[in-house]
């Protein structure tokens, strides 16, 4: 005789979300850079922006910063990045 147990998880894995379509090229794209607001993250992102512009020819780099690293980005920022960017890089440093 078997046993039946109750799933302790909030079952988020059931809400499968497809990955966004990968970009073939960064050229002429708008790339979002989300700084999670840890110390010195800005140095890393400055360099990343430089590389994106100089080596990959992106059209625009949209920089936004979370209010605090420990909480999700404000919904307004999430929506803006989603609407305006072809891809977003979330980055931190410490």
């Amino acid at each position: 005789m078997g046993t039946s147990l109750l799933d302790p998880t909030s079952q988020p894995e059931q809400q499968h979300k497809a990955f966004a379509v990968r970009l073939d090229t960064l050229s002429d794209k708008t790339i979002g850079l989300l700084d999670i607001n840890k110390a010195k993250g800005v140095f890393f992102l400055d360099r990343l922006e430089e590389i994106l512009r100089e080596q990959y020819g992106v059209k625009e780099v949209l920089r936004r910063t979370k209010l605090t690293p420990g909480r999700p980005a404000a919904e307004a920022i999430q929506h803006e990045l989603q609407e305006k960017c072809d891809a977003v890089i979330e980055a931190l440093s410490d």
Binding site: G2, S4, L5, L6, D7
Partner: peptide, 12 residues
Amino acid sequence: HSQRINIQEDDP
């Protein structure tokens, strides 16, 4: 409401 994890012969 939780989903069931049904176990037959394995050790829970």
